[in-house]
Design a protein around this nucleic acid. Structure first.
Length: 167
DNA sequence: TAGGCCATCTGGTCCT
DNA sequence: AGGACCAGATGGCCTA
């Protein structure tokens, strides 16, 4: 079993709180740090072939392969999706003032801080409105459109689509 | 060592 | 049909 043994050759990446986390370890069935989908399928075939002795012809159901590769693809998409989510949390964390870059912050803490920061900003805007008669330069509309770095727009493309659909 | 946090897998549901 | 999203389960890493 590969679980827990792929520390050196795994795909390491930084988590929200700065820890190093390895990818792939669940259920001892799939370790993306070690296997591509093709390699996984090869290994599965070897396992199955091992159980079929003396040239006995056993027709492996083709739909099982298709099903498995679909599952692998879905897993990869899910990993990518969660990675985008983690990136967004990281960006949100760096946006927060009074939070040093090397601060360990859980996702929940990040959300809470962001929420309270928004409350603080809203308060600031309200106070500002009373003190100045002119309109505040910041105007927000819904859905929010992401502009700026290409990486951001790439990550947020689906969200923007979703916002457009729901709004 | 227990508890918190996280990434990943998985199956279900919804949407395009 | 296929992809996105979601929630539950699971196990690894880290810290008090």
């Amino acid at each position: 079993m590969s679980t827990g043994s792929a520390a050196s050759d795994g795909e390491d990446f930084e988590t929200l709180d700065g820890r190093r986390q390895r990818t792939g370890r669940k259920f001892g069935c799939y370790d993306p740090a070690r296997f591509t989908d093709e390699e996984l399928e090869e290994e599965e075939e070897e396992e199955e072939d091992g159980g079929m002795k003396q040239g006995r012809k056993v027709s492996k159901p083709a739909h099982k392969d298709a099903r498995q590769s679909q599952r692998n693809a879905a897993n990869a998409r899910e990993r990518a999706r969660m990675r985008v989510l983690s990136k967004a949390f990281t960006r949100l964390k760096t946006t927060l003032p009074w939070v040093p870059a090397d601060t360990k912050l859980s996702k929940l803490d990040t959300l809470r801080l962001a929420s309270s920061y928004i409350t603080y900003l809203r308060q600031l805007l309200q106070d500002d409105r009373f003190e100045n008669s002119f309109a505040h330069p910041v105007s927000l509309t819904w859905p929010f459109m992401m502009t700026g770095r290409s990486e951001d727009t790439q990550d947020m493309s689906s969200s923007v689509r979703l916002c457009g659909a729901t709004a």
